[in-house]
Nucleic acid binder design. Sequence first.
RNA 1: GGUUUGGUAGUUCAAAUUGGUUAGAAUACGUGCCUGUCACGCACGAGGCUACGGGUUCAAAUCCCGUCCAAACCGCCA
Length: 549
Amino acid sequence: MYRTHNCGELNKKHCNSIVKLSGWVHSIRLMKKITFIDLRDFYGITQLLIPTIKINIKKEYVIQIIGKVVKRKFPNFNINTGDIEIYVKKIKILNKSIKIPIDINKEYNKNKVKLFKYRYIYLRNLNLKNNLIIKSKILNIIRKFFIINNFLEIETPLLVKSTSEGARNFIVLYRKKLGYYYSLPQSPQTFKQLLMIGGIDKYYQIVKCFRDEDARKDRQPEFLQLDLEMSFINRKNIFNIIIKLIKYLLYKIHKIKFINIKILSYKNIIKKYNTEKPDLRYKVYELNNNKFKYNINNKFLNYKIYGLILPNYFNIVGINKDVIINLLKNKINKILLYNYKNNIINKLDNKVFNKIKLIKELINKEFFSNKDLLLFLILKKNKYYKTIKNKINNFLLKSKYLNNIYIPIIIYKFPLFKYKNGKYYSYHHPFTKPYNNKLKNNLADSYDLIINGIEVGSGSIRIDNSKMQNKVFKILGLSNNKIKKEFSFFLKSLKFGTPPHGGIGIGIDRLILSLLNKNNIIDFIAFPKNYLNKDLMIKTPSKIKNIKI
RNA sequence: GGUUUGGUAGUUCAAAUUGGUUAGAAUACGUGCCUGUCACGCACGAGGCUACGGGUUCAAAUCCCGUCCAAACCGCCA
């Protein structure tokens, strides 16, 4: 037996009992006649008192000790086991460690190459460990939710067929015949639709998906997705499930009981925020430029007015208007803060003010609430505009006031197609049903889930009619030959009595980022790839030498 | 694929007078000291071909070119 207790559980109640502990040597403090060791395992840290200084033990050695739990003279309130220490009677070295090439207690921001290379050591970092614990918890909560709601968990293949739409696919060589390959799935899209056709009513899966695109801090080439699909439902039914899930998660993680999840149309979102994924807590957005870029003719010749909106600004406890003014003091010539209750917060001279009035009239009132702050910046050069935007964003991001605010929104009524370089592309994906089943309005029955400005998931009601599906493929410019080659089985499957169905795919890692107010996805992945999609630890991708058939 | 910034002790970072003495600190490491530390403290020591290769120069960490690597952004991400 390696241990009777772990390093995080002993307290006053265990005093005088003999215990056996195993773990890593976290730190060593030598005094004149005694030595203190912080012994660390997954569960915590326990202080060992060794009544000698002649020990041959270094940091990160794995040791096992037997000793007596005693009350400390001077408790340490920073750790759970701070009331006690172990008076060690016997030490055994289970395994030695060579010098550690990275500092496991430090946060690394630049030059992360060592972190990738020695990821297995950095897993001992407290923050990273806690991140993995919370990710595991969230996965459990999600599974529990879908069990309660009678979803069936079904796995789908990872060796699949490449299709011409979408991101680049990773390919896997086929051993039996040269020149043939499998493709790793970007999502289980086709298979989950086939499950619906097969009569599975509610399906979900937590599944690895693969996209061969360059990584970002919220993007990895392989990632976890919560995939779900339901039959005999319309968009409102799906919205209800999504809302229920998010509320369940926010309650289980943060004990937040009341939350209002808004459903907004794509058109209005773009008009108001000029982005597809607004962060309604605080983020600064450029008001639609056509309306708000004005040259002022007389005194302010060459100056331009930029409008910004800080949604819900006045809901944020602890921030007042002066904070923003102070923040921008030296950067710009004039600031005008404006709130829809018609409060002009600081004064400008009349000529400028008249221009602002003009702008005011152009704003469609329905978009703004009296909790929004409108900010007009009068600037000489437009390069300052981005600096200011970033400055405000960074400031608000760092401020503690936002820590417990979550504003999930569902955006719907996206365009069905976008036109680029003389070609039509699906805005969502080619299986999306047109809004009201009509192609002519170019609206899709698709929806995105955005939490605090992070695009967490997107989904749609699917086309359940073979003719419609064929039509959409043709609009997308797929030749008859290609349709036949890539989708003939699928078009055929739709003819055998397809139920109306739809679903959503939610990026688990992004969901976690949004629910925990974090920004880098690799902090929640045990073994991430770097921005070139390489794994610097196992050194992959690697070169092919011989392909044997 | 593109743009920008960067690569300096094991680690995290400085600095180097627009190219000119011996490239520093903290921490980690080693040795010694210190009855109670817990970010222990004190003293001493060891640690660098300034990413790699080439060029300019009396002289390069510094300027130039190339390669490799990293970060942010863009492209891309149905």
